[in-house]
Amino acid sequence: MSSLYHPTVARLTYRALLGRRRALILFILPALLLAISVAVRALAGVDDGTADSVLGGFALATMVPLIGVIAGTGAIGPEIDDGSVLYLLSKPVKRPTIIFTKFVVATGVTVLFSAVPTLLAGFILNGNGQQLAVAYAVAATVASVAYSAMFLLLGTVTRHAVIVGLVYALVWESLFGSLVPGARTLSVQQWSLALAQKVSDSGPVTSVVGLSTGVVLLLVVTVAAIWFAGRKLRTLTLAGEE
């Protein structure tokens, strides 16, 4: 693990992701989720169905992928766009190490700004009744891992990573996922819901895929995205290497 994780690269990536402007964007959605949760609890009281709707409809379906877009693409995309990544590549650091370190940082930031607020919102909404708070926090955590890998890959292959990521998060995951039955099986949201359904047991959480299928697909997508991102970074050459 130590050969794959580089503390200096991690520190620089954290600094880039948690800069003043980007950190402000990262705080907006969690703050909105908590505000909605407080308002719903005050107006509707404790209701498992309402809690499920807020946690599933807003937290997992909207907030988690959007934060994943910001953290995943922001971990490397800006460096590639402005060319500063070449300075990093000139250092004696293996390129797979760079990708894996940035993936770890992006995942940590996404979990912090999505899974933690989801857990808090669940306790606010219904006091973790039917294990909904824990179930959706677990779903948000595993989804954060997959989204971070996917959007990190996008950051290495296109200068329009944020736009592509937003299209996936808002159109594919939210729109197609709710309207087209077949599209739901190819959704990180549904794969993570399979774990949430297991945690909540007899709760209202449901997924269109089974637990084993969801876990396998999450692993495959995450590993494949990291591998392809590493391959893509290897194609970036310095002037002195040509």
Rank of each mutant, 00 (worst) to 15 (best):
L132H: 00
L132D: 02
G203W: 04
G57N: 08
Y87G: 09
A135Q: 10
T237P: 15
S37C: 10
L152M: 09
V208F: 06
I28R: 07
A23M: 09
W227S: 14
V157C: 03
Y14M: 09
G57C: 10
T118D: 10
G74H: 05
A71Y: 01
T235K: 09
A10P: 07
P7I: 03
L175T: 15
A229K: 04
G83Y: 06
T50I: 09
L195D: 02
A139E: 08
W172L: 10
L43T: 13
W191L: 02
V69H: 03
A239P: 15
D52Y: 13
F100T: 05
G240Q: 08
Y87S: 15
T110Q: 03
F113S: 01
V164I: 13
L4T: 04
T158A: 01
V220D: 04
A71R: 00
R95P: 03
L217F: 11
L26S: 02
I124K: 07
L60K: 05
G72E: 05
S212H: 11
P204C: 08
L153G: 07
N126D: 11
L89I: 05
V93S: 06
V205Y: 08
L55G: 00
T62W: 12
R231W: 12
I76K: 02
G182D: 11
A44R: 15
P96Y: 02
F123P: 02
A183P: 01
P30A: 04
L186R: 01
I163H: 13
K102D: 09
I80S: 00
R41D: 13
F123E: 10
F27L: 13
G214S: 06
R11A: 15
L125G: 04
K198C: 15
T118Q: 09
I98S: 01
R22L: 04
A133P: 00
V105M: 00
P78L: 02
F113P: 00
D82E: 09
L66E: 01
S144N: 07
V215R: 03
N128C: 04
L43M: 14
I124L: 10
L153F: 07
L217N: 10
I163Q: 12
L186I: 05
T222I: 03
V93R: 03
L60E: 02
F176M: 03
S114C: 06
D48P: 15
I28A: 04
G108R: 01
L4C: 08
L43Q: 13
G57E: 07
S207Q: 09
E173F: 07
S84K: 06
T110K: 00
G214T: 02
G177Y: 00
G240I: 15
L154E: 08
Q189G: 13
F176R: 02
G45D: 08
L33F: 03
V111K: 00
T185V: 13
G155L: 01
A196C: 11
G129E: 14
L154C: 11
L33D: 02
